[in-house]
């Protein structure tokens, strides 16, 4: 194996249509070696399609790019060997036991049996290795799928919404594992809906309606959005929120218990709107979620 390349993923103008509808439209993306890149965006924004093109499961209609230095159009087979891909839906065999599934994967990658034994031990599943994969809970299925995807020590790991339906403790364990792997040199591209997960990524890429909207570190993305957020304490959050949503200069109002997070792009207009409704706000940090909800709204407008 060669050393980690400077850029693990470098794609330009990737486009894919399904029955005349552009699902991915001119997406360009750079992921450096050893980086954890977050792929964010609403449902149906083209994240899965993008990931499938990167790992050679779909052929792009247009665009060029390299994955681990290999051409995405011509070297799909070689790419598949060096990439681990964890699908959104559990796609191992539910009628095979945990060990049988791992043996199957090990065979396809020419891995020695010892790797399976080690993987089972790492997972803490040695005693349950004869249990059918279908009988595992969501969290365990996810751990099994991850273990199976990284058994062949891929240089690039693609994870498609890996933590959907997994409890918070299992999610935390999962992310610890991902960070360990990245520290060991593995590059990771992970798609997610969760903002706390996005914040665990080195860089994030936001995609909406097939188009890449913004890329950068979490801090960069928040700073570039140019939003001001104020926290308003109120006795009647419901009514105030309803009134503020209609006020000029207010983009978003999010209730958090007895307080409201009010966000707008113009700080003066935002304060004026609050004053008009006899409310005062204290400065708060704009969260990634505030930025994304705004981005989603904007892309929505562009489409219409």
């Amino acid at each position: 194996m060669t050393a980690i390349p400077e850029t693990a993923i470098s794609i330009h103008g990737l486009t894919k249509s399904f029955s005349g509808r552009k699902v991915v439209d001119d997406v360009s993306l750079q992921v450096a070696g050893g980086e954890i890149a977050g792929f964010l965006g609403p449902n149906g924004s083209g994240k899965t399609t993008c990931i499938r093109m990167i790992c050679g499961l779909l052929t792009p209609d247009a665009g060029t790019g390299t994955v681990l230095g290999l051409d995405v159009l011509r070297h799909q087979r070689q790419i598949r060997r060096q990439v681990g891909y964890m699908t959104q839906r559990f796609s191992f065999y539910e009628d095979l036991s945990i060990e049988e599934n791992l043996n199957f994967v090990a065979g396809l990658y020419h891995l020695p049996r010892q790797v399976v034994a080690d993987t089972l031990a790492d997972l803490g599943l040695t005693s349950r290795r004869r249990q059918l994969a279908g009988s595992l809970s969501g969290g365990w299925k996810q751990r099994l799928a991850l273990a199976a995807c990284i058994m062949h020590k891929p240089r690039l790991l693609l994870l498609d919404e890996p933590t959907a339906g997994v409890d918070p403790k299992a999610r935390r364990q999962f992310w610890d594992e991902i960070h360990q792997r990245a520290a060991g040199g593995m590059t990771v591209l992970v798609s997610t809906h969760y903002m706390d997960e996005a914040e665990r990524c080195h860089r994030i890429h936001y995609i909406a309606y097939g188009r890449l909207v913004i890329s950068g570190t979490v801090a960069e993305v928040i700073a570039n959005a140019g939003l001001t957020t104020l926290t308003v304490e109120t006795a009647e959050p419901g009514q105030l929120a309803a009134r503020l949503r209609r006020a000029p200069g207010v983009d978003q109002v999010e209730p958090f218990g007895t307080s409201l997070h009010v966000t707008g792009s113009d700080p003066a207009a935002l304060r004026a709107a609050l004053a008009a409704h006899d409310a005062t706000g204290t400065a708060a940090e704009t969260s990634l979620e505030d930025v994304f909800i705004r981005l989603m709204g904007q892309s929505d407008d562009n489409i219409r």
């Binding site: 499961l57 598949r80 839906r89 796609s91 191992f92 539910e94 396809l108 990658y109």
Partner: peptide, 13 residues
């Protein structure tokens, strides 16, 4: 139908 095809194709068989 069981969704395992995607995974099978992603592996080097």
């Amino acid at each position: 139908e069981r969704g395992t095809m995607e995974n099978l194709l992603a592996m080097p068989a």
